[in-house]
Each structure stands twice: as structure tokens, then as C-alpha cells.
Nucleic acid binder design. Structure first.
Length: 583
DNA sequence: GTTAGGG
DNA sequence: CCCTAAC
């Protein structure tokens, strides 16, 4: 029974109906402002006395309410319940609840130093962070008493504002817990939810003792008790990508950070809500900006420190960065790599904070998600293009074609070649119907596209054996993004390249490609350029006194005849000598 | 669209 | 090979 969880009403009922309740009662320390705050779980006996809670009770509360707390009152109950676990360590450590004031410092240190408690402690911290976030600017402006509570609370420990205010019923620990009926004093923290019903009641110790003081709790997000999986989902909902991280703490921190960031943005209605996350939007709406003044009077300084601390922390944790296209792709790329249980779209739609927009491009559908950046929402492609760079051409082609009629299109010869090539690679072993179509091997394409070229490619037949045996085209079986197929340069290719350079000059890669490499559709001008660069490196390497070619030759690399290398060097030198304009 | 360079 | 800033 005795619980702190549940929604306010329920709790009140419970309190009124039962003789004894387990609850957390705020105790005030003599100098609240300076002293750190500690919390003690106590029970309210029938006569109104406060009795230190036993471990059993604590656990009871912990187990029952932790889970029941959820929805109705914006997790009012949940937060409070969540506060409990974090208090356990303290309670246990402190003999019969006698806590020396000034425990916050050590307390926070414990977070870092004591593994056993880290989880709980961090949960609390996270939770508090959330609270701080929710209460920052907008929330602070809430007209109800909540804001006051928050602010007041924050005053207790200026330095730890964002760590402590969240507990529903913080008990600033004074030296005398037993006499803890200092509810009046503690009421510098005004009950928020109660405030409506009995604003000043808290001033009366006994009466107040009868009523649960859920004041400090407002719409909250409770990441604490979520299983890792849920956290990961939340993470995904928050950031639009999945994570494999299993570290709860990390997840929570990240989520918190992300959410916070969003919430600070005025224009965005970044209410992150899902099972565990409760939106603050409504509340924010309820709280007109003007009402900020209300709270300001009380806690201008504290409020300030609150946001400041938080923001600074946030800054350290996450830096807003304008995502480059590549960055975006990488994000979604990660998603790709992750085996997704449910379909992305489905998941996305589930999360209210991630809007999934389907844009149909031809036959393809692009899902975008909305992310908030620097105060504004932008849409970014949720699913990356599976391929980057060159393959894109083919995607474009695909879109043009709208169908699997690949070879049908007869635009530019080269693009066509590339196109079919990629299709091949795409189909690969999978032998997808659409892709495979007719062009099973490159020769077909060549005959089709580059008939005129073929005359020049007498050699290509010989090479084609090399080229074609590369059928180990990249497959996307894993569904993962894979770099373009690696096709080792054959000697004949290198020779061709060198000849091409000799003919047209280094730098005329496009020309060389078209005139000397027309048969090798997969060699792009860039490839030629790269290869040439590598050749030069090799030559230079060989040139260097201490190195003998053979010895340093890398395992996989093809052996290039010295003669050829010499030729390369020769050409290189020649190129170097000839002024650029003349080349 | 190509090239040059960094990754 | 990939990616992209410069041409």
C-alpha cells in the first residue's frame, strides 16, 4: 500500500484511507540554501508522526509504484517513485536515516566512484536533468505552482540545481530526521499539484503530513526503469537512428541530452512522448510566456543557474552540428546496418517525435524524418541511398526508367554502360529479375553500346577474361552498404593506362578513359587518375634508394614490370617538365 | 562534367 | 575506391 507512486488523486485517496503511509517527506535543514539536500524515505504514522521507512517498505514502494506510475498525471507518480530507488543507497548507508547535512557532495561523488550505486544515482541524475529541461524556460513559466516549486527547490542547492529538484518530495536532510516535522520549513518548496487544492495547507504540519506532497513532480519522462531495449527504442525515436549501445547510462544520457536540446527550441513542439516520455507540450501551452514573471520573482537566480548549468552540461555532451549530407547518410546508413525488428516506417510512425514522410520518387519511396536543428525543423532523408557517388547515376537512371527496362534507355553511351554495370552488380548473385535483364556480362553491354569502340579494343577481349572473371561483383546481401566492387588492375589495364597517358597526357583522364578504356566500363576517369597516382607512388617508392621494388611490394598488389614503371616515371617526369597549358 | 586531392 | 571542392 503505502506508496508514493500513482497519480496524485490516487495517492491522496490512499493516504486518506490508510493509517500509515510510506512516503517521502521533505525535511528542511537549518540552512537549506547552502546545504546540500538529502532525501529520506519515511512513513507517516497514523498520528502524523514520521517514521523512518523500513527497507521492506522501501522496496515495496520501489517495486509496486515504479511500474504503476505512468500516465494520467503526467507521470506525477512515476517521478516520485523513481526518486525512491536513488534514495535507497543513502538510506541504507545512513544509519536510521541520520544523514549529515552536506551529503550532496559526497553523494554526487558516489555517482562516479561507486559502481554499485551508479545505476541508481545516474538514473536520478538523468531524471533530474530531464526535469530541469522540462522546467527550463517554458516550463518555468507554468502558471501553476509547479514552477515555484521547481524554482524554490533549485534554490536549495544552487550548485546542484539540476541534480536535485526533481524528486517529488525532496527531504532536505537536517540532522534530526526524527523530528522531521519541519514540513513548514520544507515548504519553501511548495506543493505543486497540491497547490491547486490546498495552496497553503502545507504550512500546517499535521494536515500536510496527511497529504502526499507531489508538488515537485510534473510531466516527466522516466527513462530510469526502462529496459535497455526500451531505451534503445527511445534513442531511436529521439535521434532517428538505432543504437547498439547497451549501456543504460549512456543511453539515458544521450536521450536526455537529445530531448533537452529539442525542448529548448521554442518553435519546435518537441514533445517526446512515447510510453515513457511524456510530452510537455500541453503544459507548455498552458504556460504562457508572460507567466514567467511569476516564477521569476522567486527564483530568478536559481532559475538562471538551473538553465545555465544544464545548458553548459549539454554543451559538453552534445554540440549542435549542421549535418552534412554525408553525415546524414551515415546516420541512416547505420540504420541500414542494424537489423530492424519492425519496419522502419512502422517504428517511425509510432514515435510521435519522428515524423515519417513518404515521398515517392518515381517508383522509389524516400522516407524522411524531421530533426530539429538550431531551432528549426528540417527534413532529412531517413533512409540513405544505398549507394554513393557513382551508383547514383544509376539511381537516377532507374528513376527515369521507372522500371526495369534498363538497356532500353539509350542515353549517353557511357552512362549507359555504367548503368548496366551497376545493375549487374546490384543483381549480382541474387540474380534479381529486374536488374539482370539481358546484360549478363559486360561484353553484351559493350556490344550493345560501344560497337564502334570495339575495334579499338582488340586487347579488351584478352582483358575481358580478366575483367569478367571479376564476376565477384559486390553483393549487397548483407543489406549493408558496400563500396564499389574492387577490381584489381590488370597488367594490360595498367599498360593501357600508361599508353593513354603517353598519348593524351596525364590529366586527360576523361579522354583516356573514352579512347583507351572504352572497353572497361568500370574504369572511370577518376579511377584512371587514381591508378596513375598510385603508379607514380610506386615508381617514386622504387626510386627511393633504400627500397627495392620486390621487397616492399605489398602482398596483394600486382607486380608491375620494371619496364612499365620506368615508363611511368618517364612519363611523369615528362609531364612535370611540360607546362600545364601544353599538356 | 572533369580534375585534383584528401580520406 | 570514395568523396568533393574547384574548375
Amino acid at each position: 500500500m503505502g506508496t508514493v507512486g500513482g497519480n496524485v488523486k490516487d495517492c491522496r485517496e490512499m493516504f486518506e484511507g490508510s493509517a500509515a503511509q510510506t512516503r517521502i517527506t521533505p525535511f528542511s535543514s537549518t540552512n537549506q540554501i547552502k546545504n546540500p539536500v538529502a532525501y529520506k524515505l519515511v512513513r507517516v504514522a497514523g498520528d502524523g508522526r514520521l517514521v523512518p521507512a523500513t527497507d521492506e517498505e522501501i522496496f515495496k514502494v520501489n517495486e509496486t509504484d515504479m511500474h504503476t506510475a505512468s500516465d494520467a498525471c503526467q507521470s506525477v507518480g512515476s517521478l516520485s517513485a523513481q526518486g525512491l530507488p536513488s534514495q535507497l543507497p543513502q538510506l541504507e548507508e545512513t544509519s536510521q536515516g541520520l544523514l549529515q547535512s552536506g551529503c550532496v557532495e559526497p553523494y554526487t561523488e558516489q555517482v562516479n566512484s561507486q559502481p554499485e550505486y551508479n545505476e541508481q544515482m545516474l538514473q536520478k541524475v538523468e531524471q533530474d536533468e530531464r526535469l530541469a529541461m522540462v522546467h527550463s524556460p517554458h516550463m518555468l513559466s507554468a502558471p501553476d505552482a509547479n514552477s515555484q516549486c521547481c524554482n524554490e527547490t533549485s534554490m536549495f542547492n544552487e550548485d546542484h540545481v539540476h541534480h536535485e529538484p526533481s524528486l517529488q518530495q525532496p527531504i532536505p536532510f537536517s540532522s534530526d530526521v526524527q523530528n522531521g516535522c519541519n514540513v513548514d520549513q520544507s515548504n519553501t518548496v511548495e506543493p505543486c499539484s497540491n497547490a491547486a487544492a490546498s495552496p497553503k495547507e502545507t504550512a500546517a504540519p499535521p494536515a500536510d503530513a496527511q497529504r502526499p506532497d507531489f508538488s515537485l513532480v510534473r510531466g516527466e519522462i522516466c527513462l530510469n526503469n526502462l529496459p535497455i531495449k526500451a531505451l534503445q527504442e527511445t534513442f531511436k525515436a529521439t535521434f532517428g537512428r538505432e543504437t547498439t549501445v547497451k549501456d543504460k547510462t549512456w543511453l539515458k544520457r544521450r536521450i536526455t541530452t537529445g530531448l533537452t536540446n529539442s525542448c529548448n527550441v521554442p518553435t519546435t513542439n518537441l514533445t517526446i512522448k512515447d510510453k515513457k516520455l511524456v510530452g510537455n507540450q500541453d503544459k507548455a501551452n498552458d504556460a504562457p510566456p508572460s507567466s514567467t514573471d511569476n516564477s521569476n520573482g522567486h527564483s530568478n537566480a536559481s532559475g538562471h543557474s538551473l538553465t545555465e548549468d544544464f545548458s553548459s552540461e549539454e554543451r559538453a555532451a552534445k554540440r549542435v552540428r549542421k549535418p552534412t549530407r554525408r553525415y546524414i547518410e551515415e546516420l541512416s546508413e547505420n540504420d541500414e546496418k542494424q537489423p530492424v525488428v519492425t519496419s522502419k516506417d512502422q517504428k517511425l510512425s509510432e514515435k510521435s517525435d519522428v515524423r515519417s514522410i513518404s515521398v515517392s520518387l518515381g517508383t522509389r519511396v524516400t522516407v524522411t524524418r524531421v530533426v530539429s536543428l538550431a531551432g528549426s525543423e528540417i527534413e532529412v532523408p531517413y533512409v540513405s541511398l544505398v549507394r554513393r557517388s557513382r551508383p547514383r547515376e544509376n539511381i537516377m537512371a532507374l528513376m527515369e526508367c521507372h522500371s526495369s527496362c534498363l538497356e532500353a534507355k539509350a542515353s549517353s553511351g557511357e552512362s549507359n554502360m555504367l548503368y548496366s554495370e551497376v545493375l549487374k552488380s546490384a543483381s549480382g548473385p541474387d540474380q534479381k529479375e529486374s536488374a539482370t535483364s539481358s546484360s549478363n556480362n559486360e561484353e553484351d553491354v559493350l556490344t550493345e553500346v560501344d560497337q564502334d569502340m570495339e575495334t579499338e579494343n582488340i586487347d579488351s577481349s584478352g582483358n575481358s577474361s580478366d575483367d569478367n572473371n571479376n564476376i565477384g561483383l559486390p553483393t549487397m546481401q548483407g543489406g549493408g552498404l558496400r563500396r564499389k566492387h574492387h577490381r584489381a588492375w590488370t597488367l594490360s589495364e595498367v599498360t593501357q593506362l600508361v599508353e593513354g597517358v603517353a598519348k593524351y597526357g596525364a590529366g586527360k583522364w576523361s579522354e583516356i578513359k573514352n579512347l583507351s578504356f572504352s572497353s572497361h566500363s568500370y574504369r572511370t576517369p577518376v579511377d584512371l587518375k587514381d591508378k596513375w597516382r598510385n603508379l607514380l607512388l610506386r615508381t617514386n617508392f622504387a626510386q627511393s634508394p633504400s627500397n627495392i621494388m620486390g621487397s616492399l611490394k605489398k602482398h596483394g598488389s600486382m607486380h608491375i614490370p620494371m619496364q612499365l614503371l620506368l615508363q611511368v616515371r618517364e612519363l611523369a617526369e615528362k609531364q612535370a617538365l611540360v607546362p600545364r597549358n601544353h599538356r
